[in-house]
Amino acid sequence: MRTTAGMRRGGVPRPGISAERYSTPAIVLHWVMALLVLGLLAIGLYMTGLRLSPEKLQLYSWHKWAGVTVFLLAIVRVAWRLVRRPPALPSHMSGPARLAAHAGHGLLYLLLFAIPLSGWLMSSAKGFQTVWFGVLPLPDLIGKDRDLGDLLQTVHWYLNLLLMAAVAAHVAAALKHHFLDRDDVLKRMLPGR
């Protein structure tokens, strides 16, 4: 009888190992959003140090397009998660570890909404309309207000710093599960398995 990852002969799971994987749509959404978020962070850090130029304006446009895309994909991702529950956490995880995992995921989801929204609000307050992919103008969420725009820029910056820390913790936790705990938490999110 063939065995699958995490299963003993006869279909009995090994202790601490789940035979469940994330669904293909969840895996695709995860990795597309991960690449977009990493690209957004890199472009955001790079473009803020540039002098005003056509290159800087183009990078800001790309950054805004990708940010709106992340916001929309986050809506799809949450909707998918409500319809299709993720695999259970490994049985060997303690109560505090489970709480930390849920809190970490909750923070990531919150930031995937809050950061694009803060950027959109900032653009509106600074008087720069967001035009998604240069085609679809999005409504300004608030009126032009320079002081509020500066405040929202600071909020956007600190939310991104928090995102960097949350992503680093997320990656560290996945690697801990893979290399130290030797469970399938990372494997069940990998494509093509």
Rank of each mutant, 00 (worst) to 15 (best):
T3Y: 07
M164T: 03
Y46R: 10
A74P: 00
S23K: 06
S124H: 04
L59W: 10
K56G: 07
L36C: 11
W132M: 07
W80M: 08
A165N: 01
L50N: 09
A168L: 12
K64T: 10
A42Y: 10
M1V: 11
R77F: 11
I142K: 14
G39H: 02
L40N: 13
S53A: 05
L186S: 14
D181V: 10
Q58T: 04
I75V: 15
A114Q: 09
G44I: 00
R9K: 12
G149A: 06
H105M: 08
A19F: 03
Y158K: 00
T4Q: 11
L151F: 05
F133A: 15
L111H: 11
L36T: 08
F71H: 09
D150Q: 06
P15V: 01
R9W: 10
G49V: 07
H63A: 06
T48D: 12
D181G: 01
P90Q: 05
R14K: 02
K126L: 15
V78H: 10
A88Q: 06
S53I: 07
R2Q: 12
L72W: 12
S123T: 04
G106P: 05
N160A: 14
G11M: 07
W120F: 01
G127R: 14
P96M: 08
Y46Q: 00
R77W: 11
A169Y: 10
P96R: 15
V37M: 15
W80L: 14
P86H: 14
V28K: 01
L117P: 01
P139F: 07
R81T: 11
V70Y: 11
L110E: 07
G10V: 07
R193P: 08
H102Y: 13
I43K: 02
A19G: 15
L138H: 02
I17Q: 08
H102E: 12
M122S: 02
K187G: 13
L159F: 07
M122H: 04
L190S: 12
L72Y: 04
G67T: 08
L159S: 07
W62C: 03
V28G: 03
L45N: 13
S53C: 08
A26N: 08
V12Y: 00
H156E: 02
I142V: 15
K176A: 03
L162N: 04
T24Q: 12
D145E: 14
L111C: 11
A125K: 03
A168I: 09
F128K: 08
K144L: 12
G143L: 05
I115Y: 02
L180H: 02
A174S: 06
F71M: 15
G106A: 11
P13G: 00
S123Y: 00
L73S: 03
R193S: 13
T24N: 11
G149S: 05
H170A: 05
V76G: 08
L29A: 13
P96I: 09
G143Y: 14
D147N: 01
F133M: 15
Q129S: 14
A166C: 02
M93I: 08
L72G: 12
K176E: 04
R182Q: 14
L73K: 07
F71A: 13
R85G: 01
G127H: 13
H30Y: 09
P54R: 05
I115C: 01
W65M: 03
L73C: 05
K187N: 14
L99N: 06
S94R: 13
K144I: 09
G10N: 07
H30M: 08
R182W: 06
A174R: 10
L180V: 13
M47E: 15
I27V: 15
Q58V: 06
M189Q: 13
R188A: 04
H92R: 10
V37A: 14
F113Q: 03
L159I: 02
